[in-house]
Design a protein around this nucleic acid. Sequence first.
DNA 1: TCATTTTCTAAGGATTCCTTAATATACTTT
DNA 2: AAAGTATATTAAGGAATCCTTAGAAAATGA
Lengths: 100, 100
Amino acid sequence: MQSPLPQRLKSARKLAKLTQEKLSNKLGFDDRSHGTARISQYETGKHAPDFAMAKKMADALGVPVAYLYCDEEKLADLILAASKLDENQLTMIIESISDL
Amino acid sequence: MQSPLPQRLKSARKLAKLTQEKLSNKLGFDDRSHGTARISQYETGKHAPDFAMAKKMADALGVPVAYLYCDEEKLADLILAASKLDENQLTMIIESISDL
DNA sequence: TCATTTTCTAAGGATTCCTTAATATACTTT
DNA sequence: AAAGTATATTAAGGAATCCTTAGAAAATGA
């Protein structure tokens, strides 16, 4: 099983209109190369970030960290959609699923 | 940021009524100790599994792999509930969120 | 094309993981 | 309550993976 993180990370970054360098800066990696090399390695699947790094990148990109690890497309879509809801709305959705 | 995987893995395993050894067997680790030590290390947060291993454990426990990495409780609940739906039902839920 | 930006890669020191063996904790039964 | 059994955890070191650095390759666009 291949990790979905590389593709999801790359597409989320593109959607946020960030270069690897800009994302690198948002993450606190100051000068060039320090961050972009790592981000590239993550996006190409050459290496995997640990959870703390995945969380930081997800926050910087405005997606739930679980989204980066989701290997089912429809479920990934749901996670993204749900991330824009507040707690009450989420509760209502969960209840409506129980009623199916 | 702490990884949610240790706690989620442990609670999912308990819910499935499996010991670390039984889960270890389901994963293909044959004799004792080979698997239980690793699973214990994952559940106590001493070490983190790579994605392939996380996916295998999630499959064995009947939860989406993204659930293991979800750090928001309500979203985690939604992921679990949604995992029992078929594609059509998922599509309908996503649409109903768009309408909010 | 040329200049510039953006992304990718190789190599090695640094870090983390997996295996093994043993210990510790939690149950059960007597 | 102790002994026996099942379950879970830990330490240590060899094995694997990651992070840093420097540089090269692709992509962009004037």
